[in-house]
Amino acid sequence: MFRPVPVPALPPSTALADLATAGEDHAWLVGTTGVFTSRPSSPLVLRWTGDTWHEEPLPDLPAPASLSGVAATAPDDVWAVGNSSGHPLVLHYDGTTWHTLTTPPMTWAKAVAATAPDDVHVVGAGRDGLHWNGATWHLRPVLSSAREHLRTITHTGHGELWAGGGGLAGVGAASYEYPVLVRWDGRTWHDLPDPHLERGHVARLAAAAPHDLWLAHARDTHELRLHRWNGATWHEVPSPEDPDRLSVHGVAAGWTWGVRAGRGSFETRPAFHRWTGEHWAPVPLPDQLAGTSASHVGLTTTGATTWAYLKTAAGVHVLRHTAA
């Protein structure tokens, strides 16, 4: 079962975006405060101290900003990315302090992955992404079209990365979205064939090992389909079964998350499922959260520890699941 852990009080305008871990006892949750308010939006980083989640002091920024992705290679090497006034925002944590890094311009920064302190990649909208080599940022071509974008990126091991998103084809009423999948081999990005996906986009990628990659595909109907790569071929994984109306929002290595709603209800309750090797098993939540309407649901897993987050009318909640 997931168990709640202490979280600082956050304003109702908080939007949660991404989680990252570095080992069993170090985790970071990023997002934005001031969303849909008259106040300027501000980046938010929470850090797990081993006892509680602590809101991190961040550098002052000259303009409203938001965070959408986070990655970590070690407790003293954490990267958070987002945007500020049309420019990419990159923050780095050295174990003591968060610093703002100046980067070349890119259209929109969405996600970040780090394989080592001297190998960090930022992707998003437009053809180009950012690569940090330990000393300098470089703008690198990632996509073949300016009408394509990347939403998700994951590190599979041995310096290899996969990133996914979508592109727009056609004009006007005849336009449609198609999936995009690319891989970094340590030197350059390559287009990859997707697992025979229909229209839509790659919503989430997560790797458990170099030959164990999970992919969530969002179709035009906004229904997520799940696929798994074994190093040679893709296999579709059945979606979790649920008596209610289940909406899967993402996939991690052996986990899914989303929300469910009863028939005839608009209340969206959090839902987390774990892969048994044959099917998806629902993971119980604390009673006070299981029946509560929730949004901004997310999850990440590492080793025996899995972290999940969600937002309810009462505020932000973070849950911890430890394998027996």
Score class of each variant (00 low, 15 high):
230 N>M: 10
234 W>A: 05
202 V>S: 03
179 P>G: 02
261 A>V: 02
173 A>D: 12
225 R>M: 04
235 H>C: 08
211 H>Y: 11
261 A>S: 15
165 G>I: 03
242 D>E: 14
200 G>I: 05
231 G>V: 08
195 P>A: 11
173 A>H: 07
190 H>P: 02
166 G>W: 01
244 D>Q: 12
255 W>H: 10
249 H>D: 13
199 R>I: 00
171 V>A: 14
186 G>N: 04
220 D>K: 01
245 R>T: 13
238 P>T: 12
210 P>G: 07
206 A>C: 04
241 E>A: 15
221 T>E: 12
242 D>A: 08
246 L>H: 05
201 H>Q: 12
186 G>F: 08
206 A>Y: 01
254 G>T: 07
185 D>V: 11
226 L>R: 04
172 G>C: 11
169 A>E: 15
177 E>N: 11
232 A>N: 10
222 H>Y: 12
212 D>N: 14
252 A>S: 15
217 H>Q: 08
178 Y>S: 02
187 R>N: 13
251 V>T: 13
254 G>I: 11
172 G>A: 10
215 L>M: 11
169 A>R: 14
188 T>S: 15
252 A>I: 00
162 W>S: 04
224 L>Y: 05
238 P>N: 12
161 L>V: 07
241 E>G: 12
190 H>T: 13
191 D>P: 13
210 P>D: 10
172 G>W: 11
178 Y>G: 00
254 G>N: 06
212 D>H: 03
221 T>Y: 00
260 R>L: 06
221 T>M: 01
223 E>M: 08
160 E>N: 09
225 R>D: 13
181 L>K: 07
211 H>Q: 14
231 G>C: 11
231 G>F: 10
200 G>K: 01
262 G>V: 06
259 V>T: 15
184 W>E: 06
222 H>W: 12
200 G>R: 00
204 R>T: 15
241 E>K: 12
225 R>C: 02
158 H>T: 11
197 L>A: 01
203 A>Q: 14
184 W>M: 06
200 G>M: 04
244 D>G: 05
231 G>R: 05
263 R>S: 13
240 P>D: 11
240 P>R: 07
214 W>I: 07
198 E>Y: 00
236 E>I: 03
182 V>N: 03
175 S>W: 05
215 L>V: 05
210 P>Q: 09
240 P>N: 08
166 G>N: 05
221 T>R: 06
247 S>E: 13
247 S>R: 14
229 W>K: 01
215 L>I: 09
